[in-house]
Design a binder for these strands. Structure first.
Lengths: 346, 346
DNA sequence: CTGTTAGCGCCTTCAC
DNA sequence: GTGAAGGCGCTAACAG
């Protein structure tokens, strides 16, 4: 029988601070462990007792305490989702998909967002106490940081990143071949004078896109102008301005390494230089975010299959939670060319 | 001394499944409770022992188990954040602010996003087991649902919503007066034939904006045309089309109840009807999301003070966590008119 | 199928 | 300032 008997409201009054399984057991006239079983899925319990218990539970507003449960089962049903840059236009889509998928499989999302990549170590210190079952990470982890997850036996999935030395499972969109496709079409349409608006050095996919663009342009004997920005709209405006200046206004095509910058470049080209897009200048992006398809932009870009990628990330993570020690698979998704109307393609 | 002695790696090899405070105590040559004190802030412990313990802890990769701690202290440091519509352009900003603020005050964010408002009850069932310290909710709660939080003694802050019957603390942007300001300027500029593109009925702020617009137009003897959409860009396009049709093309101004729809309307007006904005048609929005200020739109709108609102929500929540039983204050923030270039204002 | 008995890892009195 | 017990709410073997 229950040892604690705080002076509580008599009948089914205020649930106050949360009833325990003992309270429910008492009310239902069964043992505490019966209550426990009633709330676990594969547990053997007679339908009648179960029903009795559920009724009592509802009356008391009882819900099993996840903390007590997690302490024993060593399963918290918590998944950490780490996103560096929530205001990026691209990530909200990802986050929405991830939380939906994770909820659907009985997991809760513990969200971490970073103001700067340097905060990662600090953030890891906030994660460990919660004994998350796994993590999905869209931020640049160092090998050392990946190893900390590995050492603790916490499976992780890197999103649009790959582990450099330390093994890590990952899903990503194939930036290299997406960019190649854009470059090829631009070359085929006769563009020769290129500018590139790239992101900061510390972005994995950003550098991949930049490298790919330069490599394939070099293969055609072309050396593009380069400007670096911060992946946001304003960077696109600044980038276009810088490129126009550096080229003396002689530019055929601009490759931005994401959509936000491409849209900034388009608006700047139209607004500040009165250029017709794509007739006088072709501009391409990457990601296929929502606004890219808006009438004002109709951006020529590569659309990442966000839903499938998120689905894959969740599936892979759950596999690894249920079945520890799986090999660090890397899944690479192809992007889809959205022709749009911001570039002339050949 | 520790009773469990699993056959583990001998030295400081693999931290495996997480060291406990007993492991640390043993290694540091102190009692378990000393370790506990070393990791709690206001606890009395000698600097030297503390240091010894911290060294041992680091060696073992020890971090206190939040589940065990929460079980005793009844404080989980978890805050539920519920957002109905993550892909809304507006909410990512909010979410980013909220997570930053909450992290800064030692709280973890448990994120829930809804595909439909009907999922709320289901979601509440997922929240209770985690004994969150509080919740910030940007979704339409019914009184009954608010009461469940109140009954459990879990403080909540409604974001851009207010409780209808059941008392609830809230922060919101003053939609009514923001809309009034827009309408007044539009009237002053001589607009007479109005169309409104509104959101679905179940949006609190949406209806508030709609009501306010209609009321102030009515005061000027004007009855606007109305089209309802879903708060997204496409709805704005459709809305404009519908209004043009219903008015036979005779329209002076369109009031969209959020920015996304306003931007859709602008693009549609330009693209499908070849109208010059704002010369031939004024279009206004509400929210002041990022893209609204982009060169292609330069939307005339009301900017919500998102940062201050998020800050306020977090502050109010924390107050109520530390000091239960505070009265349900409602904080209303004024929006700022962004004149932009999508409407002629008087 | 049900009740009993140990803990999960930590915080919290309480003596010392 | 430190260590020794007890218990937070629940699950996981066990008997019956």
């Amino acid at each position: 029988m229950p040892k604690k008997k705080l002076p509580e409201a008599a009948a089914g009054g205020s649930a106050a601070q949360g009833a325990t399984s003992y309270d429910v057991a008492e009310l239902a006239g069964v043992s505490q462990s019966a209550v426990s079983r009633a709330f676990r899925k594969g547990a053997s319990i007679a339908p009648k007792t179960r029903e009795k218990i559920m009724r009592a539970a509802k009356q008391l507003g009882y819900q099993p305490n996840a903390f007590a449960r997690g302490l024993i089962t060593r399963r918290t049903n918590l998944v950490a989702v780490v996103i560096s840059n929530l205001t990026n236009l691209y990530y909200p889509e990802v986050l929405a998909e991830l939380t939906q998928r994770l909820s659907a499989t009985g997991h809760r999302v513990l969200l971490f967002s970073l103001a700067a990549e340097s905060e990662i170590d600090e953030m890891l210190g906030l994660i460990w106490p919660y004994r998350v079952d796994g993590a999905i990470i869209a931020a640049r982890l160092k090998d050392e940081q990946i190893r900390q997850f590995n050492d603790r036996g916490i499976p992780i999935i890197l999103y649009n990143r790959v582990g450099e030395g330390e093994p890590a499972a990952s899903v990503a969109c194939d930036s290299a071949s997406g960019t190649r496709e854009l470059v090829r079409h631009l070359l085929a349409a006769g563009h020769r004078r290129f500018g590139i608006i790239a992101g900061p050095h510390d972005s994995y996919v950003g550098e991949e896109r930049l490298d790919s663009a330069r490599r394939h342009l070099a293969a055609a004997g072309i050396e593009p102008l380069l400007h670096r920005g911060g992946f946001d709209y304003r960077s696109g405006e600044e980038g276009l301005r810088a490129l126009m200046e550096a080229s003396g206004g002689k530019l055929d095509a601009v490759i931005a390494t994401n959509d936000a910058m491409a849209m900034g470049a388009i608006d700047c080209a139209r607004g500040a230089y009165d250029l017709a897009i794509p007739d006088q200048l072709s501009i391409v992006g990457f990601d296929g975010v929502g606004p890219a398809t808006w009438g004002g932009y109709q951006l020529t870009t590569i659309r990442q299959p966000v839903r499938r990628m998120a689905q894959a990330a969740v599936d892979m993570l759950i596999e690894r939670i249920e079945q520890p020690g799986m090999e660090p698979e890397q899944r690479l998704f192809g992007g889809q060319l959205l022709p749009g109307r911001s570039a002339r393609l050949g």
